[in-house]
């Protein structure tokens, strides 16, 4: 049965890192299963200069259509569904990113193929492909058996540690979708991120507020600790969605990736989307009341306790002597 097809995440002239992670994994699975690896990119330009740096696939496909030049998630999903439907690959590999989320479930829905989202591991046992997916905020893993039919996998970025570098695929072919329905969606413009008062990606010490801070009224306490440590305050998504801190302070999938010398998580549970953005920090320390919080799986040091007891005591000890 079919090949392994990686959908390249190609946006504004750049191929995302996750595409090379997926290609690395596809190569490994392809060797185990005796399947070839193909990579697909969608564009409106021919020849597109991206096709030469899609990575070491056996074959690259350029899906070419004048309507698919700018970011066009639904049109892309429909063109890809037409392309993949003809070929019936063993697996379609994409990612749980803003790019992949429109496309992965979209293709699955259009073609009636199974989808496995939030995939953090893929292995082969007795020629059966087994995918592991992270659910319930990372508290539970679901292990599923990929059926004997084409299946769409959306992986969490950073899951596959052996990425390949950009290089030229062995062969490049062009495929032009016929009868693509007129676009119902159009990109008007890109909106660049607002300039931040504080750049959390450059801070050496980050004090990160999670859902456990309970209320915006408790932010001054967190800020005081950050000041005492000489760091800055960042946040997990629930804190930003609640409007307690601006979006440019958010760590994680829809926020920023940080690698500070010290990450101190306060009431951060550690959903997969958050861990993706901080797990490479040099020193991770977490304080949380829930001993089973996933943040403790990546932390070097943990305190199971109440931040409203520990933080004031810590601030007290950090005060300059004589005050």
């Amino acid at each position: 049965m079919g090949n392994l097809v990686v959908l390249a995440e190609y946006l504004r002239g750049a191929v995302a890192d996750v595409t090379f992670e997926l290609l690395g994994k596809a190569r490994e699975l392809g060797n185990l299963l005796g399947l070839s690896v193909e990579v697909v990119v969608v564009s409106d330009r021919q020849p597109d200069d991206v096709t030469g740096r899609l990575g070491p696939a056996d074959r690259a496909w350029l899906i070419l259509h004048p309507d698919l030049g700018e970011f066009q998630p639904e049109g892309m999903a429909r063109a890809l569904a037409a392309f993949l439907g003809e070929r019936r690959p063993r697996l379609v590999l994409t990612s749980t990113t803003a790019f992949g989320m429109d496309v992965a479930a979209g293709i699955g829905g259009l073609l009636g193929w199974p989808v496995v989202a939030y995939c953090s591991a893929l292995q082969v046992a007795d020629r059966t492909i087994i995918a592991t997916s992270q659910v319930y905020g990372g508290k539970v893993l679901v292990e599923v058996e990929i059926p004997d039919e084409p299946t769409v996998i959306a992986a969490l970025p950073g899951s596959f540690p052996a990425p390949v570098g950009p290089s030229a695929p062995a062969a490049v072919e062009i495929w032009e979708p016929a009868g693509l329905q007129p676009a119902r969606l159009r990109l008007r413009r890109w909106v660049e991120p607002e300039a931040a008062d504080v750049d959390i990606t450059r801070a050496e010490i980050l004090v990160v507020a999670g859902r456990g801070i309970k209320s915006a009224d408790n932010l001054p306490l967190i800020e005081e600790l950050a000041r005492a440590l000489g760091g800055v305050v960042a946040a997990s998504r629930p804190v930003v969605d609640a409007g307690w801190l601006p979006r440019n302070r958010q760590v994680g999938k829809s926020g920023l990736t940080v690698r500070p010398r010290l990450y101190l998580g306060l009431g951060v549970s550690g959903a997969p989307e958050h861990l993706e953005g901080m797990k490479d920090s040099q020193l991770i320390v977490a304080i949380n009341t829930d001993r089973k919080a996933p943040i403790f799986d990546v932390a070097h040091y943990g305190v199971v306790g109440d931040i409203f007891e520990v933080v004031p005591a810590l601030i007290e000890r950090l005060r300059p002597e004589g005050h």
Binding site: L11, F71, T97, A98, F99, L185, R186, L187, R188, R189, W190, V191, E192, P193, E194, R247, N248, K253, S254, G255, L256, T257
Partner: peptide
């Protein structure tokens, strides 16, 4: 998108 980039569609 990641890092606060947004597409107006």
């Amino acid at each position: 998108f990641k890092g606060g980039l947004r597409a107006e569609l």
